[in-house]
Design a binder for these strands. Structure first.
Lengths: 109, 109
DNA sequence: TCTTTACATCGCAATATTACGATAATAAAT
DNA sequence: ATTTATTATCGTAATATTGCGATGTAAAGA
């Protein structure tokens, strides 16, 4: 196997899991933090900042772009990546929908 | 490869990625939602609720337990699993530390 | 035009994850 | 003591992810 049985879960569960998955890598966390810190956009800087090969960074950026967290626009011969504020807020809202629930415990634990 | 280069990232980045990773599966989301909904604890119910084999459920529970989100206590011949409220709140705080940052965009995007 | 720079993509090798049957282990019930 | 119920663990097959070198592509500069 190694194949998630997506069909037995709700769309909401699958989508939420997908969002968590794209954030489930330290390189992608680092990329997001760097983009946020620079307030502006970046591109090739990341290859220097993180210690990963250009191909690897490019792949991580693609995954972040696929879920819409970042967007890239061509600036001459380089590409400028930025957070999509709208998507960013949406993700936060979805996470809080999950985490704001009361998690009262009954007897045993 | 297939091996994350954890040593080039900060502890914070690695820990955050690990938290996201455990939530990055629809079955584990479903398990958490079910535990929350039942307010009380559960155990074998999950095997009936979700359409996964007992061994698979047990494995997912173990992963949730490993990061401390849930805890299990033996109740006769079954095991009662509950959310650990303290850890739950801590995780929410860590996520919000990331997502509450301002994500102002500069020129290009 | 030729070169350089910045990215993207392809194709792999190494490792990780997912799922499950089989098989323990433990406690209750008979 | 034997059976039954509930869970954990082991082993394994199928698939996914990570990382990177090599190669492609497109724009800028010489």
């Amino acid at each position: 196997m190694g194949l998630t049985k997506a069909e037995i879960f709700t769309d909401e569960q699958n989508e939420l899991a997908l969002l968590f998955k794209v954030l489930a890598h330290p390189a992608r966390i680092a990329i997001l933090q760097h983009i946020i810190k620079q307030k502006a956009c970046i591109c090739n800087d990341l290859v220097g900042e993180l210690g990963l090969a250009q191909a690897t960074i490019s792949q991580h950026l693609k995954e972040l772009k696929n879920v819409g967290i970042i967007q890239g626009s061509v600036e001459g011969k380089s590409v400028c990546y930025c957070i999509d504020e709208k998507v960013w807020k949406q993700i936060q809202m979805k996470f809080n929908e999950l985490f704001n629930q009361d998690v009262k415990v009954k007897q045993c634990c």
